[in-house]
Write a protein that binds this DNA or RNA. Structure first.
Lengths: 137, 137
DNA sequence: AACATTAGTTAGTCTAACTAACTAATGTAA
DNA sequence: TTACATTAGTTAGTTAGACTAACTAATGTT
């Protein structure tokens, strides 16, 4: 039982550090990349959307978005609800994501060497279930 | 492919926060608990052993051990090699681990609800393979 | 004997999280 | 419709846990 969660924690650090190394030449951190990934894959999102998805508090999102705005990879639009700020990718942002997605895919493919498609799927399902079981804050 | 690694990262945060909440009443953080866990399950270990196991740099281990020494949960012995410091659990440390292991086990059991033993095993194997594939720093 | 390596520490930095306290807009209920 | 509660986001300050660089002391190697 323990090795399960222990290993999970153990993977997280070196994976992040690989990602950071990979993204450094593009001027992105792992979480910044994670944010543009969501905006590309899921579409424009509010700060609260992101905080909910990541399961972090709202103030944690602000500085990550700030830096992407400075780099002109995202911009803020106002929603129908005037309290909301909706983040969108700029054209630069879309380009940057497409560029980096390729190398991230390559990393991920290499990490999955020796793992069958079926094993990957089962693991994905298990991880999704864990996430659901973790929901109760 | 992406959901796989995305989900993995997503699990890590709320899992840690559950662990922190659980361990707070015992005066332990998640990593401190992780260290006494190793000392109990694997036996006395040097700072370098821990750094290697966790895949962190050596200075990261020092403050975590410090706090356990202050709490008198571990003590430092000198190895045959006089450069080495070997961490051992004190009797208090053993007690504290046994106490907390129970509640950690309970948490982990609850998180695994809805996951079959076979799925759990496959996932564990996949996580181990990922860890190996990540080895190249 | 001289030099290189290894174990661990100290000092200082960084990222990404947190809480508390706030403003402004929206929703609800008298 | 006015009063109050809630929600979206920010600002300021803190924290945990990582990092690098530079160091001491012990051990290995040539």
């Amino acid at each position: 039982m323990q090795p399960f969660f222990t290993t999970l924690k153990l993977i997280s650090r070196p994976y992040s550090s690989k990602m950071q190394d990979l993204l450094l030449p593009f001027g992105l951190t792992e979480v910044q990349w994670g944010l543009i990934r969501i905006l590309y894959e899921e579409g424009p999102s509010t700060f609260t959307d992101i905080a909910t998805y990541w399961r972090v508090e709202k103030p944690s999102v602000t500085p990550i978005a700030q830096k992407l705005i400075e780099q002109e990879l995202i911009y803020i639009g106002i929603g129908h609800d005037k309290r909301q700020k909706v983040m969108h990718l700029t054209n630069n942002g879309v380009e940057k994501y497409k560029e980096t997605k390729q190398i991230v895919d390559t990393l991920q493919k290499n990490l999955l060497i020796g793992i069958t498609e079926q094993e990957r799927q089962i693991t994905e399902q298990v991880l999704e279930k864990l996430l659901v079981n973790l929901k109760g804050r």
